[in-house]
């Protein structure tokens, strides 16, 4: 059993908040207002490459741009929990930020349950664990009813 005191920590610091309604921690380019994720690994806007990047919380809902899974266990540095359950991955469009962000899909959802255009929200979930800690990553979890897929008109 998982002990009640097991500490929940991000697998890598600085990518998402740990509250009940978590947000990805991204950046906003001071010059143009464009966004990036992760905060310090985004590209610059060439019109204003020296502009600073301000830390912002990104929208915590978006729509699935595309999705898939990894039927075989990914190689290190992915840490496999046995028995391996195929990782499901979604690329999610954030409307305000006009960008697409990758992430795992929350446990319990398989590719057959997903559609392009489906609305999802950000949650945190366990990536791997040891005796003392659960190491978390960000995940996308579908919201509500399945929408009628419209195919979308934006190629991102």
């Amino acid at each position: 059993m998982t002990g009640t005191t097991r500490q929940r920590v991000p697998a890598v610091e600085g990518f998402f908040t740990l509250d009940d309604e978590p947000h990805l921690i991204g950046g906003r380019l001071a010059g143009s207002g464009g966004y990036c994720f992760p905060l310090h690994l985004g590209g610059s806007d060439p019109r204003n490459p020296a502009a600073g990047v301000e830390e912002v919380e990104l929208s915590r809902t978006g729509r699935i741009w595309s999705f898939t899974n990894s039927a075989y266990p990914p190689p290190p540095p992915f840490i496999i929990t046995e028995p391996y359950v195929p990782v499901v991955v979604a690329a999610v469009e954030l409307e305000l930020e006009q960008m697409v962000v990758l992430g795992q899909v929350a446990p319990g959802w398989a590719v057959d349950d997903l559609e392009v255009g489906m609305e999802v929200e950000l949650v945190t979930g366990v990536l791997y664990e040891d005796d003392e800690r659960e190491y978390l990553t960000w995940q996308w979890r579908p919201l509500g009813e399945r929408p009628v897929p419209d195919g979308g008109d934006s190629d991102g």
Binding site: G26, G34, Y35, C36, G43, L96, Q98, L102
Partner: peptide, 11 residues
């Protein structure tokens, strides 16, 4: 190998 695209919100 990116985790996200660039953003079209500012350009």
């Amino acid at each position: 190998p990116y985790l996200a695209t660039d953003s079209a919100a500012g350009a």
